[in-house]
């Protein structure tokens, strides 16, 4: 039975040029290589920072800033 959570239909538009998917794969591989650098970090006990905790956002008020 088909899942309602399946991926959307593939784009109908043609790829912009021959070899496009290869270029995407190359860049994705480059990003993977960059991100591999984080594997060596000791992150035990470290929680992810969410969008709203990135800089302690809620701690400040406009009056405190200027």
């Amino acid at each position: 039975m088909a899942s309602s959570y399946g991926p959307p239909a593939a784009p109908q538009e043609p790829a912009p040029e021959a070899g496009w998917s290869d270029r995407v794969s190359e860049l994705a591989a480059w990003l993977d290589g960059i991100l591999a650098g984080l594997h060596g970090l000791d992150l035990e006990g470290v929680a992810p920072s969410s969008a709203y905790s990135a800089a302690g956002t809620q701690a400040g008020t406009p009056d405190a800033v200027l």
């Binding site: 994705a28 991100l35 984080l38 970090l41 992150l43 920072s49």
Partner: peptide
């Protein structure tokens, strides 16, 4: 779009550090 959720979370944890 090819980046794994695990890598995104690892970046978030790295940001905390």
């Amino acid at each position: 779009a090819h980046i794994l959720a695990a890598d995104h979370l690892r970046a978030q944890r790295s940001r905390t550090l």
